[in-house]
């Protein structure tokens, strides 16, 4: 045990490890806050689609050799989020088909672009790390860390300021609209925030695993608690805890960061389901 702790302390001498932990905690927090709304509004498929769009944008950014990839990925993903929300509301075009089209299209084009233009010798490795985020969190620059911190603060602030509105729009959109809440605006806000979170989370777990980060803590918390506030609290705590545990494990054991975090999330979900089952069984 003491050897492990010594090893950890040694690692924490390196700034990139500290950065990774800070960014990891923030991303886990943001994604879990919105995760509950996403799951309940049946928006989780949009999250999945957007993560593929983010991958496509990342490929373009790589090909264009942009110094800061986020500057391209963020606006593209936000715009797609807005477009997907629009088509989702339009009853004539099937929302999920549109999402599938955009997401698979972005994935294919992204890979194609990287394949044609990439100068890198290790193409498969590049693609793999964008999809599964194997190393990107450990190679964050200081600017990226600050950008991450700033965006996370924005997401958390928006969530706290609009918490009650987000609840109302999630629970019963028609009632919220009928009584004068501008539900469409809040849907838009939620979509934009989701896009931001996805772009952030791409650094941590890579674009294929983002949905796991968003959905698992929410589902786990919903096994245990039956009111909105407790579910949000629980999923936030759970998500941060799993992220820290996952990052530390991956540093010590040398496993890929993203999949380790997701593995911890899955374990937490299993435990929560078990506890929820026993609790529910005892109570009635």
């Amino acid at each position: 045990m003491s050897i492990l702790i010594e090893k950890l302390i040694l690692y924490f001498e390196y700034p990139f490890v500290r950065y990774a932990l800070i960014v990891g905690i923030l991303i886990a927090l943001c994604s879990s806050l919105l995760g509950v709304t996403l799951v309940l509004k049946r928006f989780s498929f949009i999250g999945d689609g957007l993560s593929h769009v983010a991958f496509g944008a990342m490929a373009i950014a790589t090909v264009m050799k942009l110094s800061n990839h986020m500057l391209l990925i963020l606006p593209v993903t936000v715009i797609c989020a807005i477009l997907l929300l629009r088509t989702g509301q339009n009853a004539k075009i099937k929302g999920d088909a549109a999402v599938a089209m955009i997401s698979v299209g972005a994935l294919a084009l992204g890979y194609l672009l990287m394949n044609i233009f990439s100068a890198s010798a290790n193409l498969a490795g590049d693609v793999c790390s964008t999809l599964f985020g194997s190393t990107s969190i450990l190679t964050l620059t200081k600017t990226e860390v600050w950008l991450c911190v700033a965006l996370s603060v924005v997401v958390i602030a928006v969530f706290l300021l609009f918490y009650h509105k987000i609840f109302a729009v999630t629970f019963d959109e028609d009632f919220a609209k009928a009584t004068g809440t501008k539900a469409d605006q809040y849907n838009l806000l939620i979509a934009v925030i989701i896009a931001i979170i996805i772009v952030l989370a791409m650094n941590l777990v890579g674009s294929l695993l983002i949905s796991a980060l968003v959905i698992f803590p929410a589902l786990s918390a919903m096994r245990l608690f039956k009111n909105f506030k407790s579910v949000i609290f629980c999923s936030a705590i759970l998500s941060v805890f799993c992220a820290v545990l996952g990052i530390l494990t991956s540093i010590l054991a040398g496993t890929p960061v993203g999949s380790t975090i997701v593995a911890v999330d899955i374990a937490a979900f299993a435990i929560c389901s078990l506890i929820g089952g026993i609790w529910g069984g005892v109570k009635g």
Partner: peptide, 11 residues
């Protein structure tokens, strides 16, 4: 949907 009665009424 996890929501308590109070949360719904006050919304």
């Amino acid at each position: 949907f996890p929501a308590s009665v109070l949360e719904i009424v006050i919304s």
